[in-house]
Amino acid sequence: MKGFLNRLRGVERDIIQQPVEDEAGAPYYEAQENEVEIFEAAYKKRLPVMLKGPTGCGKTRFLEYMAWRLKRPLVTVSCHEDLTSSDLVGRFLLEGEATVWQDGPLTRAVKAGAICYLDEIVEARTDSTVIIHPLTDHRRQLPLEKKGQEIEAHEDFMLVISYNPGYQTVLKDLKPSTKQRFIGINFDYPREEIERKIIQNEVPELDTTQVEKLVATGRRARTLKDHGLEEATSTRALVYAGNMMVAGIEPVEACKAALVNPVTDDPELAEALMEIIKAHFAV
């Protein structure tokens, strides 16, 4: 019954996601380098972490995996242009004739000792990014200005931000004073054999030769990144392409839909990408 209702209206879940305990529920993640060890060390010392890397290379997935591994709840906030500090920290609401304070996601994470993940932090306005400063140094405090309070962070609380140095303009970079408070982990698109593994795992129905071709195509397409492609072909896009193929779309068309159309409007670039795809798939 519950399953049926969920399918009907989606699943309502609290923003603080309790970790799944069993092995089966583990998010799939394939380590590229030593990022798991670095993250664990940072967590041990409760240092804030910054994940850097292009879109679709697995930052978010990595964090889901780490949260599961460390058995900590995860609070994810996707940052956007209009995200104000009260969106993070909390605000007063009217309820009847009284006002009540409602904690924002960051406050809740601080109190619950969760891992708080601010995704694409540069998108948020700079005034909202500075409120995380006291959380990121030895103080580990969150000031609630409106309430006139300061919250000492739960001892298991950890702050993680992600940040894609690629597509923002210079104007939208993080402040240096913010940046230098973090342990940085660089991500890039995975190595060829790892990428194959990932795609095979994400799209188990796809046969091995197709996976190989897909990965080769993706790697080739990435060479065009500096030639007008703002975002290179991501592993996620490859997974999408694989899914499209499995769903019965011709490989060339699937790649066009997943790898070419979304990333460029430049006809010549699109043609060059198609050339790569056809070389691999159209025989």
Partner: peptide, 11 residues
Amino acid sequence: QRLLQLILYAW
């Protein structure tokens, strides 16, 4: 020209 250049660069 640009397409050809892109193709060469890609390969």
